[in-house]
């Protein structure tokens, strides 16, 4: 029994509609493990801490270098990416839970569709499709490009939505990630041609920008250090001006 083990407590559920339960696992320690490799070990040998054979734990991952966001889960109480959660830096037993702000599909896998729907809703892209070549767009100043690069690091991981007290089943709030993307694409010289349209999407439907209650958890939680609250405040300024423009201003909104 001198062999080192890693203890994990995993919150599991069989499918979307079943009740969650906790299961304990003890797996042999290896150096340089992360939460993903621990989960792989369970998949290789799905036996729980009581020695009973069980189903393998389901989880999601893709890039394994904290750029895709797919592997996000709650690790010891905090939402983060499991691929960069190193076992040596975690207190044991390591508690893993799904980010249940999102629909839980099975065990640790969640459905982040709402985030992608939000990106579609705000047109988080630069529309250039057309029937003829539009030629090169205007250039972006280097300093602005460097600033925009920081905003572009968002990997739609959902950690900021998980941390936000206003994103829950009682509210329609779109959440910080998509809001910050509006600021990013509005700052782009070509993307900015659809600026008013994006702002109005945030002002129109249910759960837009104004649902933010300024708890500012998102900016603390974002693994990419995206200045989410600055984006939100900047958009508040722009939508305030846009609404004055719409009401008092001219007959075009662009």
């Amino acid at each position: 029994m001198s062999e080192k083990v890693i203890e994990l407590v995993i919150k599991r559920q069989a499918d979307q509609n079943s009740e969650p339960f906790e299961e304990k696992f003890k797996i042999p320690y290896r150096t340089n493990m992360n939460v993903i490799s621990a989960l792989m070990e369970i998949r290789r040998n799905p036996v729980n801490a009581n020695g009973e054979t069980t189903t393998a734990v389901a989880w999601d991952a893709s890039c394994l270098e904290e750029v895709c966001g797919a592997c996000s889960m709650i690790i010891n109480g905090k939402p983060r990416q499991s691929c960069t959660a190193l076992i040596d830096q975690l207190e044991q037993p390591i508690k893993l839970e799904p980010m249940n702000t999102f629909p839980v599909l099975r065990d640790l896998t969640i459905d982040r569709s709402r985030m992608f729907d939000s990106l579609k809703r705000v047109k988080a892209w630069v529309p250039i499709d057309g029937t003829y070549d539009l030629g090169p767009g205007p250039r972006m100043p280097e300093a602005k490009r460097q600033w925009a690069y920081e905003l572009s690091k968002c990997m739609t991981c959902g950690v900021c939505l998980e941390a936000c007290p206003n994103v829950n089943s009682k509210s329609e709030f779109i959440g910080p990630a998509a809001l910050s993307q509006v600021r990013l694409f509005n700052a782009h010289p070509t993307g900015g041609m659809h600026k008013a349209e994006r702002l109005e999407t945030l002002m129109d439907g249910e759960g837009g920008l104004s649902n933010c209650g300024n708890s500012q958890n998102c900016v603390q939680a974002c693994p990419k250090g995206i200045p989410l609250t600055t984006s939100i405040a900047a958009l508040n300024r722009e939508t305030s001006l846009q609404s004055f423009k719409n009401f008092f201003g001219t007959d075009h909104t662009a």
Binding site: G77, K78, A163, P165, N166, N168, K170, S171, N211, G213, N214, S215, Q216, N217, Q220, A221
Partner: peptide, 20 residues
């Protein structure tokens, strides 16, 4: 007020407390 789901136990940041 009743739309929020408070989470100061997990995120005990100053602003989150002020929000609550």
């Amino acid at each position: 007020a009743f739309q929020a789901k408070h989470n100061t136990s997990t995120y005990s940041y100053f602003r989150n407390w002020m929000f609550r």
